[in-house]
């Protein structure tokens, strides 16, 4: 039997534009998701430890293939305040999804067929980054959305005290600078697609702060801590000139 109740259903909204469907690996320790977007440029890794759910019960390993497109529609109409419960019995072909709106007490139940998802197995090695910078998530989202209105990619430059997001395109250029208190092993400069950063920043509601881990020649990491877990977004570095 598997039963998990989750109070941050907005997490689904944060990843739906990157991943259309995914296996959810359910273990006694918690739920994990690890998947790559179709263009192979971004990877989403989510870990929700059992302690973050009330209740959580999983007595055997279970992989649920879930359409995030469908899940998003279900969660969207329930609103941000809804809790989401997943239930599965010994038949892994279907699972139950229960949405509960705390304000009104309304309960919506679905029986969903588990999808058979042909998913790459990803091994994510431990990486030492040149810069690991934590900034307010709302500021990060504001910067990404603002610059992306006119421009397509952003160059990140970080020094001891400041991180600078600068961008240029046909219409001209723009930049945003933020103070930070993080440690750097040295100054760093790299370029990232704003379209993806805007996507990653949809996780803003999950956490007050976001941590950017940057190095020139390895995937960049954008991480949001959630209660008893995290949502991590990796982005491929640019290659060639």
């Amino acid at each position: 039997l598997f039963h998990a109740r989750f109070e941050q259903a907005g997490l689904v909204d944060a990843i739906k534009d990157l991943i259309q469907d995914s296996d959810f690996h359910c273990r006694d320790s918690g739920i994990a998701l690890r998947n790559m977007d179709n263009s192979q440029v971004a990877v989403v890794v989510i870990l929700l430890e059992a302690g973050g759910f009330l209740p959580y019960h999983c007595d055997r390993r279970l992989n649920l293939g879930i359409s995030l497109t469908s899940l998003t529609k279900i969660v969207h109409y329930a609103g941000d305040e809804a809790t989401l419960a997943l239930k599965a019995n010994d038949n892994p072909d279907t699972f139950n999804l229960v949405l509960e709106c705390l304000q009104t007490g309304c309960i919506i139940k679905y029986d969903i067929k588990s999808r058979d998802i042909d998913q790459e197995h990803l091994e994510i090695p431990k990486t030492d980054y040149a810069a690991t910078i934590t900034i307010p998530s709302a500021e990060f989202q504001r910067i990404c959305r603002n610059l992306s209105q006119l421009l397509e990619s952003v160059a990140n430059e970080a020094s001891e005290e400041r991180i600078k997001f600068s961008s240029s395109g046909d219409i001209g250029s723009g930049s945003a600078t933020l103070r930070h208190n993080s440690d750097l092993t040295g100054p760093i400069a790299l370029t990232i697609s704003l379209k993806y950063l805007v996507n990653f920043s949809k996780a803003t509601a999950l956490s007050y702060s976001v941590t950017l881990s940057l190095s020139s020649e390895v995937p960049q990491l954008v991480e949001y801590k959630v209660e008893s877990g995290f949502a991590r977004f990796y982005f491929a570095p640019q290659i060639g000139e």
Binding site: M36, A42, L122, E123, P219, Y234, A236, G240
Partner: peptide, 14 residues
């Protein structure tokens, strides 16, 4: 021209 690398080359199954 500069391009975006694939994450499979970093995270693909060993």
């Amino acid at each position: 021209p500069a391009g975006q690398g694939s994450l499979l080359s970093y995270f693909g199954q060993k």
